[in-house]
Design a protein around this nucleic acid. Structure first.
Lengths: 241, 241
DNA sequence: CCATATTTCAAACGCTCGTTTGAATTGGCA
DNA sequence: TGCCAATTCAAACGAGCGTTTGAAATATGG
């Protein structure tokens, strides 16, 4: 089995191992798995170029260890509910979800690579994505889905819940995925903690209003009160403003 | 100057050149500039491995030609207003914008690589991104900004307009950028023309409701009618539902 | 038809990458 | 101290990449 997964804590070897995981986290988060080079990771760790292969076997194995290491850290640093009680009103839970999501991605501290790593996996996957979807993304999707379902109320259409969830997540991911464009369009934009809070405010209020409208539409559809034209092709819209 | 930019139309050389641009468009759109290989592009074009260097100089130059070629095609195939009159009501223009944006990205026909190429540039830029931002993205951002500003009404706060615009664009881009995740979460999801129409409906109605709420908030802030507490840190929210 | 320019081709070059190698160094323990 | 395993190291290997090369094939035009 694996040579040293948890124990061994202070030997020179373990130090090198840890340094590689940390520099690996930084490099993988910055440029992604495919653009990251083993040589650069070793250089930042102050280790020899063969260190990755000696301690982990190959680049893929190091990447898996990096993911596992920062996933464990992320779990304690960014709990899914962001400290909000499960019984709290849905809008508060939604805001906590958005804030937590953004902080995971924009946290500048060196032990918070997990959000950036997952964000990269979503647009440039490796073989690790399958496991990440099962272990992290799907649970988060279900958590968010429950909030959205409660916000909509009644028997929410599963497809509506899914679409609204995606609308929420997409807004959170955008500023990270499309940073090259955002920074060119608005060079003064920087993602300080304060800016992230503003962003969380916007995304939450924007989406809450939208979901509330979905809820109203859904209820009207359920209780056909007066006119019910255009039943075949459900082209909503044109009624706004 | 460049050897042959427009003329020369039927020689064997021009045929090879055109084949390279088309296979290049396909490969660049599928795997991105950095992951695309000259050998694969030549193979699909039925040309020799040295053809790219002979006809274009290097890989970068081919990429620039591919971008220019499909940009010209996209302009005629997907006009910015999607055929809607400039004087049309803002909601209709917004829907046209969203629909056009999605179609550009999800069009399955072989002469519609431009949307996919730009979508890739946004998350994995090349040296071409600067020009793309100036020539394509910024004009689109201004077009969308004008629609959003009209939807909000009054003197819309520029930052609010910017945030709402990003919220819109992010929803459109999400399904393309994060396709690896979406397809794992919902394997049955496919992006047929019909699905894209549904998506356009959702994103438009979702965002229209949200922007209308922004508008209401803005007007309340302008005319301070009754209570005006918390003037320093504008924490909206908590009032929903 | 032949001389010339253009285009195609197989092969190789130079580079970077992940990985391997075998020797040198280090650390733990009798 | 002396031995042995664990670790580090410089160097090189093999594969894939963009690109170059020089000869072969093809088209052009007087």
């Amino acid at each position: 089995m694996s040579a040293a997964t948890q124990p061994k804590l202070d030997t020179s070897s373990a130090q090198t191992r840890q340094a590689l995981i940390e520099s690996g986290g930084a490099v993988f988060a910055e440029v992604g798995f495919h653009n990251a080079t083993v040589r650069e990771i070793c250089r930042r760790a102050g280790a020899n170029g063969a260190a990755v292969n000696y301690h982990f076997g190959d680049k893929d194995a190091l990447y898996r260890e990096v993911l596992a290491y920062y996933q464990a850290r992320a779990l304690q640093k960014f709990p899914l509910d962001m400290g909000v009680q499960p019984g709290a009103p849905a809008p508060a839970r939604l805001r906590a979800f958005v804030r937590s999501f953004l902080l995971r991605i924009f946290d500048h501290s060196s032990d918070a690579w997990h959000g950036k790593l997952i964000s990269r996996e979503m647009i440039d996957p490796t073989s690790a994505l399958d496991a990440i979807v099962v272990e992290r993304i799907r649970p988060q999707a279900q958590h968010l889905g429950a909030i959205v379902r409660e916000l909509i109320g009644g028997e929410a259409d599963p497809e509506t819940v899914r679409l609204c969830s995606f609308s929420l997540v997409s807004q959170c991911l955008f500023y990270h995925h499309c940073q090259p464009v955002v920074s060119r369009l608005f060079p003064e934009q920087k993602f300080s903690t304060e800016q992230v809070e503003k962003l969380a405010d916007h995304i939450t209020s924007f989406s809450l209003a939208a979901i509330k409208a979905c809820s109203r539409r859904g209820k009207e559809a359920q209780r056909p009160l007066a006119s019910k034209k255009s039943a075949s092709s459900p082209r909503r819209l044109r009624a706004a403003r």
